[in-house]
Design a binder for these strands. Structure first.
Lengths: 350, 350
DNA sequence: CACCACACCGTAAACGTTTACAGATGTTGG
DNA sequence: CCAACATCTGTAAACGTTTACGGTGTGGTG
């Protein structure tokens, strides 16, 4: 792994100055003869431009960072899938950060923006603390936040609308004739937990249905926890006829328990998940799920960031992505089984 | 976004030379008084070290690239999930490349290694062409290949063992009393397709079962294609009692068709998938699947690369990761339903 | 023939660090 | 009081580019 050639090596071999080499390599006007010599030398030496030196001089790295809480989380992966091609098309490399849902790590990432190893950042923070806001205000490169950020924070901001999402789902269930609609939520001290819980309550009110504490069950955002929560719920309110689950894993847990209890889905109990992950289409019965547009949010965030990088210095923008209800068999019955929505993705192996 | 402070700014403010500043910031021995002044100035200015300049001088970027065919592919994501923490713990950033399964893009990535924007590369190529081998031989930074690479290629190499994997599955089916074991494969001109097809044939031979062309159905690695293939297969050989599917998506398609046809799983037909993705545990019945150790391969690859980066210049190493059969309900029946294997992962949303 | 315009090229400085080397300062011992 | 030495600090070069600026040679014009 010997030291590679530099423009100096080329200049020497071609008998010209390094300035000429640089000009040729950057397509600036040069005499044909010089160009020929330089290209020949470069070719023979197998020259490749040093990106680090170039970045130092040009003050651009052509890299963008994406910081997410957890590489294992399907919602973030959906974002990643959309972000990647947008950046790639614009000639940017993608640096991935997983903050393991630790706020200090998120602050770290923000801080490291000062190292200027990237030109910009897309971040989806778990929750937004004062420390976050402080760092964001002082950020030395453009940042786009996926999630909600207070009015006045000087960054672009792409939001989901879980309130409308939950409403869509609850109205859907209502339209199917369900009147005992329960909510199976995750911890309510998390951002999504709180938002989804409130949205559920609001949606009921909207429909003129009574809010019943017995119909709300708190668990956690995992399959096993979801199952446990639903078991409790069933014991307490046997006449429940629909479950609004705060994410897809909880909903899968619900399906497990309902099957074990001999309740038919959706005939006896309809089930709705949230996030519309790949799992929703894969389960059986396939799962009706509220998409909060993770993919779309990723795409929009990438586009906003690119605009900033191109020099747009407009006011910070806020984009809210509309939720969508993916209706499948767990509410609408077997007719909707296998209704493809393009989420059938290749997987190989090696 | 004004120009940030540099060590020059600090030096001026603290009344010392830039050399002293650098020394303090790198923890080299310095007089207390100087150290104090420098740290104070740095603090007040909100100084952050410029990573690009540092990289240029030190010839290390503290970045490592991972190139995969497709960000949407669960097998690669499993690798990513393991690679990320290993690199992070060692202080490396992760640059992600998605080559969209285009060989030219893979070559590009290899070529761009010469730009020295990363210290090393982990790559899982779709297939290995002569162009790949040429670039690998000339690579200007350590590379670890996930997949198989010919003897003599000067890079570390982490392999799956699909032959043993398929054998495990077929033997499992045999042990359950199945004798008409079909294979539903993807295109046989792909690396995994060819390997899995051959392994199936070999496993049958091994067990003294006859190889029957009628029992082999070629489709593609998607759910809908899998379903189509299985439908054809069922029409042709109604007495089939087990399906060895070349990946999980095909297997999900198989479950769809079998359910529609009124065949019970596993009572009438047992089904095995491959890759053991999250989908396997989520489906119903849950899917027995051959894990080729994507996660493990990612982890090993990252560790091998780190060793190289630490200066190990041993002979190229080849590590083969053992496959594992995750037995679930689609072969072993309801008793195995919900048998957790730790793949129950948190998902939030925001 | 003198002069100018022009195209091309080379010199050198700059980007922000790290570090070899030599100079400055202070300490110790004779 | 000076030599010898240790300790700390500053100067300058280097990493590999890009680019402003001025110099050179050519051809054309008056």
């Amino acid at each position: 792994m010997a030291d590679g050639p530099t423009i100096n090596t080329i200049a020497e071999r071609a008998g010209v100055s390094i300035a000429s080499v640089s000009r040729v390599l950057n397509g600036l006007p040069t005499r044909q003869e010089t160009e020929r010599k330089v290209l020949k030398a470069a070719e023979e030496l197998g020259y490749v431009r040093n990106a680090v030196a170039r970045s130092l001089k040009s003050r651009r790295t052509n890299q963008v960072a994406f910081a997410m809480a957890d590489v294992g989380n399907p919602a973030y992966l959906a974002m990643l899938r959309q972000i990647q091609p947008v950046l790639k098309a614009a000639g940017y490399r993608l640096v991935l950060h997983s903050t393991d849902a630790v706020a200090a790590d998120e602050i770290d990432v923000l801080h490291s923006l000062g190292e200027r190893y990237v030109d910009g950042l897309i971040m989806s923070p778990l929750r937004v603390t004062d420390a976050h806001l402080e760092m964001l205000a002082a950020a030395r490169a453009p940042v786009v936040i996926i999630g909600s950020v207070p009015e006045g924070t000087p960054v672009d901001n792409v939001r989901a609308d879980s309130r409308t999402g939950v409403r869509l789902a609850v109205h859907h269930l209502y339209a199917l004739g369900r009147r005992r609609i329960a909510m199976v939520n995750g911890p309510i001290d998390t951002v999504p937990g709180a938002a989804r819980g409130a949205a559920y309550r609001e949606a009921l009110e909207n429909l003129g249905l009574p809010y019943d504490d017995d119909l709300v069950q708190i668990g956690d955002f995992y399959r096993a926890e979801g199952a446990r929560a639903v078991a409790e719920l069933l014991a307490r309110v046997p006449d429940v006829d629909a479950l609004m689950c705060a994410n897809d894993l909880i909903a899968l847990g619900a399906l497990d328990v309902l099957r074990a209890a001999g309740r038919r889905v959706p005939d006896d109990v309809a089930v709705v998940g949230m996030d519309d992950t790949d799992l929703a289409a894969a389960s059986w019965p396939s799962l009706t799920s509220v998409s909060l547009g993770s993919a779309e949010r990723g795409k929009v965030a990438a586009e906003l960031l690119l605009e900033r990088l191109r020099g747009g210095d407009s006011e910070p923008r806020v984009v809210t992505v509309a939720p969508r209800l993916a209706v499948r068999a767990s509410t609408a019955g077997p007719a909707y089984e296998g209704a493809s929505d393009g989420s059938d993705r290749k997987e190989g192996g090696a």
